[in-house]
């Protein structure tokens, strides 16, 4: 048994247990890892979404740090206001600000506010937990939903093969603001995630970190296999883990290319691509995205 004091030393439970996340939720694990890396001297601003709902039902709260939720799309602006207030009252040297939300609030409804916050140079770390659809409202397509994935608003049908567009590249949008640090991480690689969050918080100014977080409910995957799927996304090249610090790119290498079928075939959201001869084109297109990433980010040591 680890003593309470020992546990606290590592900040393991700043997002406390007892909340109502689904079994195998990648987002809750990632959020706990983020706070573990960030420590107690943070204020967290949370978008509306799964993470907010499962952690803050009045009169209970799973948050051991100052935490605020306002709305779906204004998290970055609320964080900017918090940062401004901390700055003018001389607290910014000891308090860090984290704004966080899902991919819907990041890639879609909150993108304008994120852009404003990044452009104005606020000292805020923005974290996107990317589970690739609006899971809290029942698995609807977001701008971050991957190519050909089934969601409740991008269903496959007689004339549809699922989501008709590749996912929006928000890390590159963040980079275009010329901010000092952008990173892509995965809940399947917790040590890499931990290092990136610590790195981001050591830098003053706006930072963007996007974390891939499988959602058993939305993806149709077994709860105990969340980490497997997170890793397969990286090992196929579909979710390249990289960071750009002051313009310099570093990517996490993968040992050898795993075919995308290994990642896709056991997820219900891609099931419609399998078992039918004429769907090979779609799988080849997804493989093309992975191959492009491997090339672009130099994921395999030649």
């Amino acid at each position: 048994m680890v003593k309470v004091e020992e546990r606290d030393k590592f900040n393991d439970h700043l997002l406390a247990s007892g909340h109502t996340a689904c079994p195998g939720c990648g987002q809750s694990l990632a959020a706990r890892l983020v706070l573990r890396a960030a420590g107690r001297n943070v204020m967290v601003v949370n978008s509306t979404g799964c993470l907010e709902v499962f952690s803050s039902k009045y009169p209970e709260s799973a948050w051991e740090v100052p935490w605020i939720h306002s709305l779906f799309e204004n998290t970055s602006a609320v964080a900017a206001g918090i940062e401004a207030a901390l700055k003018i009252t001389g607290q910014l040297d000891r308090v860090r600000v984290i704004a966080q939300g899902g991919d819907g609030s990041t890639a879609d409804i909150g993108l304008g506010a994120i852009s404003g916050m990044l452009e104005r140079g606020h000292d805020v770390l923005y974290i996107c937990y990317d589970n690739e659809a609006y899971m809290n409202t029942g698995i609807q397509r977001s701008g971050s939903t991957p190519y050909y994935a089934r969601t409740t608003t991008s269903p496959p049908g007689k004339v549809s093969r699922g989501n008709w567009r590749p996912k929006k590249d928000v890390p590159q949008i963040a980079l275009a603001h010329g901010i000092p640090y952008v990173a892509v991480a995965s809940v399947g690689y917790p040590m890499d995630l931990d290092r990136k969050v610590r790195k981001a918080l050591s830098i003053r100014g706006p930072k963007y970190v996007q974390i891939h977080v499988p959602c058993p409910l939305g993806w149709g995957t077994a709860p105990e296999r969340t980490i497997d799927f997170a890793r397969l996304a990286v090992l196929t090249g579909l979710y390249p883990l990289y960071e750009v610090e002051n313009g310099e790119l570093r990517a996490l290498k993968i040992p050898k290319k795993v075919p995308v079928e290994e990642y896709l075939k056991e997820q219900v959201r891609f099931r419609h691509l399998f078992g039918k001869e004429d769907r090979k084109k779609e799988i080849a297109e997804i493989q093309g995205i992975a191959d492009q990433n491997i090339e672009k980010f130099g994921l395999i040591v030649k």
Binding site: N74, A77, V78, G81, I82, A84, A85, I88, T89, G112
Partner: peptide, 22 residues
Amino acid sequence: AEFINVEGEHSAASVVLGAAAV
């Protein structure tokens, strides 16, 4: 004071909301 030029009124109100919460 911190004077924050925002990208729209939704954010203007959100910025003062966040600051008031501090």
